[in-house]
Design a protein around this nucleic acid. Sequence first.
DNA 1: TCATAATGCAATATATATTTTACATATCGA
DNA 2: TCGATATGTAAAATATATATTGCATTATGA
Lengths: 68, 68
Amino acid sequence: MKNIKLKLARVEHDLSQAELAKKVGVTRQTIGLIEQGKYNPTLQLCIAICKTLDRTLDELFWEDETKA
Amino acid sequence: MKNIKLKLARVEHDLSQAELAKKVGVTRQTIGLIEQGKYNPTLQLCIAICKTLDRTLDELFWEDETKA
DNA sequence: TCATAATGCAATATATATTTTACATATCGA
DNA sequence: TCGATATGTAAAATATATATTGCATTATGA
């Protein structure tokens, strides 16, 4: 399931997938796949993304994935 | 860092590590290590644990790990 | 037009989450 | 005293998250 909230939060911060990836220490592909919902990321990566985008886990990763 | 909140929520539901593990589809060791903070679990596993224990991601996995 | 940025996709390699099996200890009820 | 339950630990195996490299497409600004 696509993670629209993540993509929106990223765009709000005016970051490309590659830029967000660099900030959280992963590759562009990893971010792209998470946004497409084709990945099951690690908790620590989720937390790093949340902190970079000023969101909490619930805000970015709770509902959408839950309904899957 | 130990995840006390997870352990408390589990005990509140009167579940052993093995019982929670069975409900979420992993082994007892995995749950034990997550409670001890020696693991970096997967998002889907975190969500499964939250749903089983009637908590959200923020309630079980946000603050403690963040301060690490 | 053309160069560049942004993104999707795919194959192979690597790191690590998770399993499997096994042993040790502590607690508790019969 | 004994058997069962709950938990911590550890080594080796397996599954999968993530990296690496490379190519294709689209949109956009010069």
